[in-house]
């Protein structure tokens, strides 16, 4: 069964999906273009020194991919963020594969690998693992923010809660959808690879879930996904792009000053 094979179990309004995702993506592109237009209204020089590419690459690995600078600030802060970061990247990669599967011809090796080959199993496993990582990181961060005592070093506003909240609901509805699919069509040999959804399906197995409810859930999940994509450039989530760029530029400008990048020694 392909990642899109649940069409056979319940109705999916694909036309709505295409419209809402296009809308979300359009708003995302407008927002990103507006952000870039805003950045490049600055007329001063961004680089005062010659770019130090070696320093930039080194810091990209250490501070963007591994986020070691966050580790120096605290293990749990690092853990929360690294779970969201890598989980988010995983889900983004799977979404990209999903889009490609809609585009590439059915006889292409890529298509075959992900629909009929072992790629499907990897897809299911990575999807649940990445979702679980995002969920764990976002819930933990949300709890941390909401439980923070006044005067602690966290000052939470609606925008902070909204960003984490959307992530949590998005992933939860994703898991719900997958578990509903597994519960509605028992005996899927690949079910164990969707290990989180398979576990959740155990609670609803045998119960009759109305098909219209599954369609509604699917539609809600798709809508929330579009909202998330559209919201990204207008919210604190813009740091997804801006922070790595800033980290890399700073590495070049400060050329690995020992007092700033001391953890590397």
């Amino acid at each position: 069964m392909s990642p899109f094979g649940t069409d056979l179990i319940y109705y999916k309004p694909w036309l709505y999906f295409v419209i809402i995702q296009t809308l979300g993506l359009t708003i995302f592109i407008i927002g990103m273009a507006d952000n870039l237009n805003f950045y490049f209204r600055g007329r001063a020089r961004s680089f005062r020194n010659s770019p130090g590419f070696a320093a930039m690459i080194k810091i990209f690995l250490h501070e963007v991919l591994l986020q070691r600078q966050l580790f120096t600030r605290g293990f749990f802060r690092w853990l929360n963020h690294i779970l969201i970061f890598w989980g988010f990247l995983g889900l983004l990669s799977l979404s990209a594969i999903g889009v490609l599967l809609k585009i590439v011809p059915g006889d292409a090796a890529f298509y075959q690998f992900f629909t009929a080959g072992s790629g499907y199993l990897y897809y299911k496993f990575v999807g649940d693992l990445a979702g679980l990582m995002v969920l764990a990181g976002a819930v933990s961060a949300l709890i941390g923010r909401l439980r923070a005592a006044p005067g602690s070093n966290i000052d939470t506003r609606f925008s902070d809660t909204a960003a984490l909240g959307i992530l949590v609901v998005l992933v939860l509805t994703g898991f719900m959808l997958e578990s509903l699919r597994l519960a509605a069509a028992p005996g899927d040999p690949a079910a164990q690879y969707s290990f989180v959804a398979n576990f959740m399906a155990g609670f609803i197995e045998g119960g009759q879930v109305p098909r219209f409810l599954m369609t509604a859930f699917w539609t809600f999940h798709a809508t929330l996904n579009a909202v998330f994509v559209a919201y990204l450039p207008f919210s604190k989530l813009a740091h997804v792009f801006a922070a790595p760029a800033e980290i890399v530029i700073n590495a070049s400008e400060e050329q690995l000053r020992g007092d700033l990048y001391g953890y590397l020694r």
């Binding site: 490049f40 600055g42 007329r43 961004s46 902070d160 740091h239």
Partner: peptide, 24 residues
Amino acid sequence: PLNSLSPRQLMELDACTRCGECMK
């Protein structure tokens, strides 16, 4: 006016996640 600011600095405004470390 934004003349005295660089693209990097305007991008920095989006890079902040209000994580609260600076507050401490």
